[in-house]
Nucleic acid binder design. Structure first.
Lengths: 331, 331
DNA sequence: TTGTATGCGTTATCAC
DNA sequence: GTGATAACGCATACAA
């Protein structure tokens, strides 16, 4: 592939002039600049990224570390990030941590090694990846989940409050034994939703027996199994709050298998407004989270910090809202 | 951040020895190697990626250019790619082309500039991005859709055959006016599915009036609108083949609005086995595509070519299979 | 086995 | 306004 000196030779100028012309520096004779541009085009010249990155000691790459690209919630975040990053001339490297601290750490190492401009991290909650990054002066923005020490910009959803409201909604609909199916212990969103659920029970003056709580990974199979144990026990719940849309799939499968019809036999509210929620009969009541916005805001925050426009730490908390549908309203 | 010479100084050796030790060259005294490793650890040394990439004239990065990360089909591909790439020590840069040739081209430019090791491309079908890549000696693997000139390794699903089988299935169930809702003209998977649909009609000896075909973008809103015009015309179809799961959402919304119940009033088959397909009443008949496998195979193919293990062009065609459920079976 | 020296392609600093 | 040149951090050819 052609290098800058190939272009220089062809245009009959020095490499310095080529560099200046290509980077649009004003201090270059228009005629020469035109010659350089022509030569570059003829050769199909493309600046060598690694060389430029080395010389400039910076890259135009962001890393986005999430737990799972197959989770639509994170996908929406990724879209928000990508749109903002792309508009600013940045690329995005996508990493699946699978909520494993080791994998997260591994990707942070790669990010550091490649000298990415910044990292968007949805932390597993364990491990010290974020500290490692800031120790190496790499800007970090926490997305969806806060960092342990909270020593970074953070973009969150007030998921605890949303869980409380969802639980209160179920209580208002007359459900009295409301259960909760949440994610793994230690994952902050999972714990927050559980806490919010308990807030809601308390506010509704309902008892909060631990028998009505189950945890599983944030995916359908585990949730399906967990729902089965939850719903087939003695004195089962008459409603359930589910912590994300992938789990909801599992829970609803179990409901079908057990012959429990949402909205009639059991109240169901799930986090994340999946596009298919309205297709169910009855439609699924959900807690809609502004995932795309989270990603976009987080990316903008990161870019601002990279460009040094901002030095103060900010925490942005977006709110989720309950979308009431048939699965939680008694006939 | 510490450089190789910092490590050299601390270990009391030359930078060459550090480089050799850290890269596990056998020709280095174990005692020295240990000292180097210790020094590196103490300094938290991380090789500078751009510098190394420049020097070695290669990177451990793959670019994955797809139309939309929010499409679960592509997400599954991305997962397959990422898992394989990660296992081989490669990172993946994710790019959304939105099926726009210009955006695709733009990302190809970035890939070229950053000297990525290879590109996984789900081509929009227009533009010459792939040719540009091969002209610059960057390996390409086409995923899900073939390249115009087919001058690259390719991993496909036999989507045309699958569409034919799905159509035949509908015919066997007694549907006589089968419609088709596919993606934009020019997108090969969209055209293939339409062609397969027509194959199916022909095989079933059914007429193929163009009035029963609609196109929209591969997303819910457009499909919803298109479904409305399709289903509210005079002499509407009694069944419909839908080209992907996001479109299926739109189509099913329209069905609900029009009071058409799948499996009773209208037969429905959609591409992509969405996790929520079984939750519908009746469950949705789908054409399941091996998306994860496509991604994994494509990534492996790309890595093989990068390592020079293979020089011949291969086309891998995986098969999709029909999963029959209630939305297409008459009561 | 180890060290010295060179070059990867670019940008920035300096002279001119 | 332009050109020569140094430096970014690393890996390797070559010398010792």
């Amino acid at each position: 592939m052609a290098t800058i000196s190939d272009v220089a030779t062809r245009a009959g100028v020095s490499t310095a002039t080529v560099s200046r012309a290509l980077n649009g520096k004003s201090t270059v004779d228009p005629a020469l600049a035109a010659r350089v541009l022509a030569a570059a085009a003829e050769l199909g010249y493309r600046p060598n990224g690694p060389a430029r990155n080395l010389r400039k000691q910076e890259t135009a790459v962001l890393a986005l570390i999430i737990s799972d690209v197959e989770n639509p919630f994170f996908t929406a975040i990724a879209r928000g990030v990508e749109d903002v990053a792309h508009a600013a001339g940045y690329s995005v490297v996508l990493c699946n941590s699978d909520d494993e601290p080791d994998k997260e750490r591994e990707y942070v190492d790669v990010a550091l090694q490649e000298r990415v401009a910044g990292v968007l991290l949805s932390p597993t909650g364990r491990g010290d990846s974020a500290e490692l990054l800031s120790r190496n002066n790499t800007p970090v923005v926490a997305v969806d989940r806060p960092l342990p020490n909270s020593a970074a910009d953070t973009v969150l959803v007030d998921t605890r409050l949303a869980a409380k409201e969802a639980t209160l909604h179920l209580a208002e609909q007359g459900y009295r034994r409301i259960g909760c199916l949440t994610g793994p212990s230690g994952v902050l969103t999972a714990d927050d939703r559980l806490a919010g659920y308990r807030d809601g029970l308390r506010a509704a003056k309902l008892p909060a027996p631990t028998a009505l709580v189950r945890r599983s990974e944030f995916k359908a199979p585990g949730a399906k199994q967990a729902a089965r144990t939850l719903l087939t026990q003695d004195d089962p719940p008459d409603a359930v709050l589910v912590a994300n849309s992938m789990m909801a799939v599992g829970v609803l499968e179990t409901c079908t298998e057990l012959g429990l019809r949402p909205g009639r036999d059991i109240g169901v509210v799930a986090f994340d407004d999946a596009p298919w929620a309205t297709l169910l009969d009855p439609p699924l009541t959900v807690v809609a989270q502004p995932a795309y916005d989270m990603g976009a805001i987080a990316a903008q925050l990161l870019l601002d910090r990279i460009s040094g426009e901002r030095t103060d730490m900010t925490t942005t908390t977006l709110s989720a809202h309950l979308v009431t549908r048939g699965s939680s309203t008694r006939p």
